[in-house]
């Protein structure tokens, strides 16, 4: 059986909020290493991979592989019943038809308990190859969110060009064009505000802004985000957490 207690409901709330619009129904794969999720969106353009490592829970028990097929809108409704500072305990049997959630608030001795029905979800498991990317760009999450939001007003697509000097996001649309360049720099006092580019060769790829704007719903998970690019392979957008990550993969646009 699964029993996993997380100290702060807000962590789970933010993770689910980050992915629910992209993958409304998905399997949470639980085993002794933690709770993982991997799902493609309906159009097979984007993939979400999430991991909450066992050491992020206390206690964490899961002695065999359990797949929890969950509708994330249903889970969101139940998680709204938890306050951010509540502890959440997740429980499920070995062959579960429901997931039990207990929210505890130690301050006011309030305990609430919910069960949500699980679904059978037939999901392909995909092997994600370890990739040596040509460019990895780490930048402040809020900066990336702002760039995506700003450029999405002009165009459906953004070209991301990484050179050793920095990264340039540019777009063109019916009303005109625009670009934002971030030059590589290090902020000594606030390292999370730095922009870093690790580059083996220059890269220039085009992506759908609609998806990137969607990925930015994960912005509350981390102060920085890493974009990893190689020519002709999917973009990796990674939000690292203390005990896990949310990663998004996005297929590039191809010139006709």
């Amino acid at each position: 059986m699964l029993e996993a207690r997380i100290e702060q409901a807000s962590v789970l709330k933010r993770v689910i909020e980050a992915i629910k619009d992209l993958v409304p129904d998905c399997n949470f794969d639980c085993n002794d290493t933690g709770i993982a999720l991997q799902a493609m969106d309906n159009s097979h353009v984007a993939l979400v991979a999430m991991l909450l490592r066992a050491d992020g829970f206390s206690p964490y028990r899961c002695d065999r592989n359990i797949a929890l097929g969950i509708n994330l809108n249903s889970l969101t409704k139940v998680l709204r019943c938890a306050q951010n500072e509540d502890m959440i305990t997740l429980k499920a049997d070995d062959a579960p038809d429901s997931l039990n959630l207990v929210f505890e608030n130690t301050e006011n001795e309030r305990i609430s308990e919910y069960d949500i029905k699980l679904m059978d979800i037939d999901q392909e498991h995909l092997g994600i190859p370890d990739t040596e990317y040509s460019a990895s760009i780490t930048l402040p999450t809020a900066e990336f969110q702002r760039i995506c939001r700003d450029l999405s007003q002009l165009s459906e697509s953004v070209a991301i060009e990484a050179t050793k000097e920095g990264v340039k996001f540019s777009c063109s649309g019916d009303i005109g064009n625009g670009s934002v360049t971030l030059r590589t720099h290090q902020n000594v006092d606030k390292p999370e505000l730095s922009t870093k580019v690790d580059l083996t060769e220059p890269v220039n790829l085009t992506f759908s802004l609609k998806y990137l704007v969607n990925f930015c719903k994960a912005s509350s998970l981390s102060q920085t985000v890493t974009l990893s690019l190689s020519n002709e392979v999917p973009l990796l957008v990674e939000y690292k957490m203390d005990n896990g990550y949310v990663r998004f993969y996005l297929a590039p646009k191809i010139d006709e």
């Binding site: 493609m40 159009s43 097979h44 353009v45 984007a46 993939l47 392909e124 498991h125 995909l126 092997g127 994600i128 190859p129 697509s157 085009t206 759908s208 392979v233 999917p234 993969y249 297929a251 590039p252 646009k253 191809i254 010139d255 006709e256």
Partner: peptide
């Protein structure tokens, strides 16, 4: 304009 690619083919089904 550019055409949206898909992820099929990039990742192997296990």
């Amino acid at each position: 304009s550019a055409q949206q690619g898909r992820l099929d083919g990039f990742f192997k089904v296990l």
